[in-house]
Simulated assay, not measured.
Amino acid sequence: MLIEIRPALDPELAALITAQQRESAESGVPAGQRMFQPDEDVAYLVGVVNGRAVACAAWQAVGPAAAELRRIYVRPAFRGRGLARQMIVAIEEEALAAGRPLLRLELEAGMSAAIALYQSSGYRQATSAAPDRVRFEKRLPALVQ
C-alpha cells in the first residue's frame, strides 16, 4: 500500500470519510461523534492500493509534545490485510518527525476490533473522562540523529 499525505478537501479522502460515517451510522454511533469538518490543522493520510484510495487516517498536534490519532478507516473489502496497522505506523512516523512523541486517541468502548488493534500496536489504556469511551496513549522512542 502506498500512503500519501492529502489535503483536507481531497475528493478521495472525502469519499472515504463519507463511507466511514455511513458505516458508523449503521452501527449506532451518535451523530455528533460521526461529524467530519475538514481542518487545516489536521494531517490527513490516504492509503492507496492499485490506484484506489482504500484507507484513511489523520493526526493533529495537541499540546507541546503530543498528537492525537484521528479516525482510522479501511474499506470493508480491504480489511484483514494489515492496512490499518500500516496507517498507524505512518501516523506515528509523521508525528514523531514533527516532534510529537506522545500519541493519544479515544474511541467508543464497544469498538472491540479497534481496541484490540491499538493494544496490539503498543497503545496502553489511560483514564477516560467518559464511561462509554476508551482512551489510549503510546510514547514513541526518540529519533536518533
Rank of each mutant, 00 (worst) to 15 (best):
D10T: 03
L9Q: 08
V144C: 15
S128H: 03
G28M: 15
S120R: 13
V42E: 13
V29D: 12
R81F: 04
G82L: 02
A77S: 06
R100N: 01
A57F: 10
V54N: 14
Q86F: 04
N50S: 15
E23N: 09
L117F: 01
R139I: 06
G28N: 09
R85N: 05
A130Q: 13
I17H: 04
F136N: 03
A98L: 07
I88C: 04
A113Q: 14
R70N: 14
A15H: 01
E12V: 14
R6D: 10
Y73R: 11
A57V: 05
A95V: 05
P101K: 04
D41I: 08
A84L: 09
V144L: 11
E106Q: 15
I17L: 08
L103R: 06
E26P: 02
D41K: 03
Q119Y: 08
G28P: 12
G63Y: 15
I5K: 12
A90P: 11
L96N: 05
W59Y: 06
L2Q: 15
M111H: 11
S128E: 12
R124E: 03
A114N: 02
G122C: 08
L69I: 13
P7A: 11
P131G: 01
S112P: 06
Y123H: 07
V48W: 14
L102C: 02
F36V: 07
A113L: 06
E94R: 10
G122A: 03
R135M: 08
A84P: 01
I3M: 00
I91W: 11
P101R: 09
G63V: 13
I5T: 11
T127Q: 10
A14T: 10
R104M: 11
A31T: 02
L2A: 09
A55H: 12
A58T: 09
A19M: 14
R139V: 03
V46M: 07
E137N: 14
C56I: 12
L69T: 10
A15T: 02
Q37N: 08
S121N: 11
T127E: 05
V54M: 06
F36C: 00
A43C: 15
R52F: 13
A67F: 03
I5S: 04
E93L: 03
A25L: 08
E23Y: 10
P11F: 09
P38W: 00
G82E: 08
I72N: 09
A61P: 04
P64S: 07
C56V: 00
G80Y: 05
E26L: 15
V46F: 14
L107G: 15
T127L: 13
R79S: 00
V62Y: 15
E4H: 12
E4T: 14
Y44P: 07
E12A: 01
